[in-house]
């Protein structure tokens, strides 16, 4: 198995652990979440029919983006040890920043995915290879958001963008397409769903309940 595949399976395993924590934390005290994590990890290490849980998830998702991996790590950290680390909490818990993060991924995803299915001759995925003059639009979009993050102090989104770019330079994924490092369908679906939910809450004049990865 290639090293790149190992990275993909590791990221998928992270998704598995995050899902377990997400599903169980409502009923369990925080201290028990660590046990859930360890049980999940133990299950992930046991092969079922010659394949681990991470392998099965990786078969469905392919490589998760750097953004997704970092958000999953952040989610696990926030739920398991976050409250004991003030620096992390200030980075993770900012409602305005989370709205910006969701909007960033929703815009990018709504631009990329519908046209990927062949709606138009123009293929936005091609921009990610940075080989056509229009590619500059993608770079300017990301660069613009990064600058905005500095101005608005959205340091978590800034971290996601910078890490995506750095990992792209390091070529840790078997892709030369910048899109693959920045977004994936999971983070886009989550963002759109969360924005719709928040919008629905606002319309019903209720307090938005899930504006951050929670």
């Amino acid at each position: 198995m290639m090293m790149e595949t190992g990275i993909g399976i590791l990221a998928a395993t992270l998704l598995w652990l995050a899902l377990l924590v997400k599903l169980t934390r409502r009923w369990l005290p925080r201290k028990l979440l660590l046990v859930v994590l360890l049980v999940g990890l133990a299950i992930a290490l046991v092969p079922f029919n010659r394949l681990h849980v991470g392998g099965y998830i990786f078969s469905l998702t392919s490589y998760l983006s750097v953004s997704s991996v970092m958000l999953l790590l952040g989610f696990l950290f926030a739920n398991l040890v976050g409250e004991h680390w003030r620096g992390f909490n200030s980075l993770w818990q900012s409602r305005q920043q989370w709205t910006a993060i969701l909007i960033f991924f929703a815009i990018a995803g709504l631009f990329l995915y519908p046209m990927t299915a062949g709606l138009t001759l123009f293929d936005p995925y091609r921009l990610g290879y940075l080989g056509t003059p229009l590619s500059v639009a993608l770079v300017v979009y990301l660069f613009g958001w990064a600058l905005l993050c500095v101005v608005k102090r959205w340091y978590l989104l800034l971290l996601l963008l910078l890490m995506s770019v750095i990992v792209y330079y390091l070529k840790w994924l078997p892709s030369l397409n910048l899109w693959d490092y920045v977004i994936d369908p999971l983070v886009v679906i989550y963002s759109i769903f969360s924005l719709l939910k928040s919008g629905g809450c606002w319309l019903l004049r209720r307090e938005p309940s899930t504006q951050q990865v929670s």
Partner: peptide
């Protein structure tokens, strides 16, 4: 410092996207 960091991080991408191969 953050502005500079962003500029340094994105400059190679900008140059690559502007260079026609």
């Amino acid at each position: 410092a953050l502005f500079l960091l962003v500029a340094v991080a994105f400059l190679p991408l900008l140059l690559k996207s502007l260079t026609e191969s």
